[in-house]
């Protein structure tokens, strides 16, 4: 029996998260005209990082499914990769720093091992660094990272390039949870960009009618809707397949990564197109989603790695 629905508790949790983010992290904050805010503390105080954490570690003891639902919202609201990093770090961090992660006093930054060096995101203010490194994710003190700021592709995130001293690894886990959370954020982006384009297509008028009445536009939106639906369905399937341990869902996570990555990228591209000239401006939110889709996509290894991985998995036998 496959149940991809959300239960009442999950629905309430998501509603709570959405209300929190509407207040503390509206996407408009990122616009050139917006007011930069750092919602990390508010997110932590709301309880975000304890949701999927075992009770023994001071968490709520809920599951991967709940973490996935929050990651979906993180994608929709373009939260810093530090939110994913801190979620991962809470599972891996030594007891003495855990409490500070849960309250938001401390946070982790996310980083990507590129093979040559490490790209780190929003390291400023972080005390830990969670490195996505091929098949695993490992945690280190941020002091182990030495790097310099680069001109990040995604300007909503501070990017730096450098190295992390591997000897200072504190803990690690297979990358399954990280990939699931990233895929969920990408699915959130696919949904958000669809909503953005649709909202605009309803109000922008040309030739005496809303542009959404033109099939050329309507059909772009419909395809965006299908991609968002497919991505959301598959990240839910992946979360469901993880049940107790994320690695149980390897195949479904692989499918989710590829599906959500393509959906997020294509939908973000289409959202720019549907907005016309406005879509090319920094004020329109579409480009933030596009850039984040690329950033998150690289954390999954990019399209190619996603393809290779899904071919390497065994297709699931039916139950």
């Amino acid at each position: 029996m496959i149940d991809l629905g959300v239960n009442d508790d999950q629905r309430q949790m998501v509603e709570g998260a959405v209300a929190l983010l509407a207040e503390h992290a509206p996407v408009a904050r990122l616009r050139p005209s917006g007011k930069p805010v750092d919602p990390h503390r508010a997110i932590a105080e709301w309880g975000w990082f304890g949701v999927g954490l075992p009770e023994a570690r001071g968490g709520l003891g809920l599951g991967v499914a709940e973490e996935m639902l929050l990651a979906f919202e993180a994608g929709r609201h373009l939260l810093s990769p530090s939110v994913a990093a801190t979620t991962l770090a809470a599972h891996l961090a030594p007891e003495d720093v855990l409490a500070a992660l849960l309250t938001g006093e401390a946070r982790a930054a996310l980083a990507l091992a590129t093979g040559r060096d490490v790209l780190a995101f929003d390291v400023e203010g972080a005390s830990l660094i969670a490195v996505v490194d091929g098949e695993e994710v490992w945690l280190a003190q941020v002091s182990a990272f030495r790097g310099t700021t680069v001109s990040g592709f995604d300007e909503a995130v501070y990017a730096s390039r450098g190295t992390v001293d591997r000897a200072s690894r504190l803990a690690s886990e297979p990358a399954f949870r990280a990939r699931l959370l990233i895929a969920a954020s990408l699915a959130g982006i696919a949904r958000a960009t669809c909503d953005l384009a649709v909202a605009y297509a309803k109000v922008r008028e040309q030739f005496g009618q809303p542009i959404g009445a033109f099939q050329a536009v309507k059909h772009i939106c419909a395809d965006m809707g299908v991609r968002a639906y497919a991505a959301e369905a598959q990240v839910r399937m992946a979360a469901a397949a993880c049940a107790d341990t994320p690695d149980a869902g390897a195949f479904q996570i692989g499918a989710a990564a590829l599906t959500a990555l393509r959906a997020a990228r294509t939908n973000a591209e289409d959202a720019i197109q549907v907005h016309g000239g406005i879509g090319f401006t920094a004020e329109c939110e579409a480009h933030f989603y596009l850039k984040r889709a690329h950033l998150l996509g690289q954390l999954l290894g990019g399209t190619d790695a996603c393809r290779t991985r899904i071919l390497a998995e065994r297709a699931p036998e039916v139950a």
């Binding site: 496959i2 497919a230 839910r236 399937m237 195949f251 599906t259």
Partner: peptide, 8 residues
């Protein structure tokens, strides 16, 4: 895989 998930 996604198609099946969409059904569910």
């Amino acid at each position: 895989a996604a198609l099946k998930a969409m059904v569910h």
